[in-house]
Design a protein around this nucleic acid. Structure first.
Lengths: 120, 120
DNA sequence: GATTCATATTCCTGGAAAGGAATATGAATG
DNA sequence: CATTCATATTCCTTTCCAGGAATATGAATC
């Protein structure tokens, strides 16, 4: 993966938030909408942007599209995601996203990384 | 400093190279031109871009403009510059830049971080 | 004070991308 | 098979930025 592609993905706030939340585990679009509190088009387009550049992968599950980070992310991506996570540790927006995620999937919070709960 | 501003600066190859080389120490525009082998306008504009966002600082020394990283870079910048350096450790373009830098200022290579040698 | 030198700025053009409104797709369900 | 639901795509407008050519600035030097 090219480093530049990664940085291009990182230079938009919505995409930063998407990637940050994805660090907790796979998630579907409807959950992103609730967590980020942003319109569907916006979420969907930015996910497409990330997907086109290989930063996320998708799997269709019935009506839902479940997005996740690549199973084996290249070193550059891993390094930058770790760096991002570190940088936003005290950022209210990013932390609010995380706490909303945990409210959405409280049963998963205990059992390791969150999964998309659409099927429940 | 806003994290987004940093990422915006990082999503262009020329700026990545400038920042990477600046990690070795202050440098003037003419040296950047030689090291990156890019036209003056391009270098100058990207340095202005970085400067406008606070990623670099300038000092005039006679005819030369000496650019450097901020004396006390905020944590987000430090983290990302370290991450960048790590990611390009095996990248031929970035490593060629470094070796050109050392050829330009061999006497400085030994004595710690490189300084702009225009005054010599 | 005219010239030179290093660098910055302006003016242009083309392309990318963000955001929203509207519409399309495709799976599930009645 | 018509509808609903979750999501994607298209179309549009606006803004931003990259790159190059030409020109401007400002310090130094003759």
């Amino acid at each position: 993966m090219e480093l530049l592609r990664i940085y291009e993905c990182l230079c938009d706030l919505t995409r930063l938030r998407l990637l940050h939340v994805l660090g907790e585990g796979p998630l579907c679009v409807c959950h992103f909408q609730e967590i980020l509190d942003e319109p569907q088009v916006k979420i969907s387009k930015h996910l497409a942007y990330l997907r086109a550049r290989g930063l996320v992968e998708v799997e269709r599950v019935g009506n839902w599209m479940v997005y996740e980070l690549p199973a084996k992310p290249p070193a550059e991506l891993r390094a930058n995601l770790a760096c991002l996570q570190d940088c936003v540790r005290e950022n209210p927006v990013f932390q609010r996203d995380l706490s909303r995620l945990r409210k959405l999937a409280p049963q998963l919070a205990a059992s390791g990384p969150a999964r998309c709960g659409c099927r429940d």
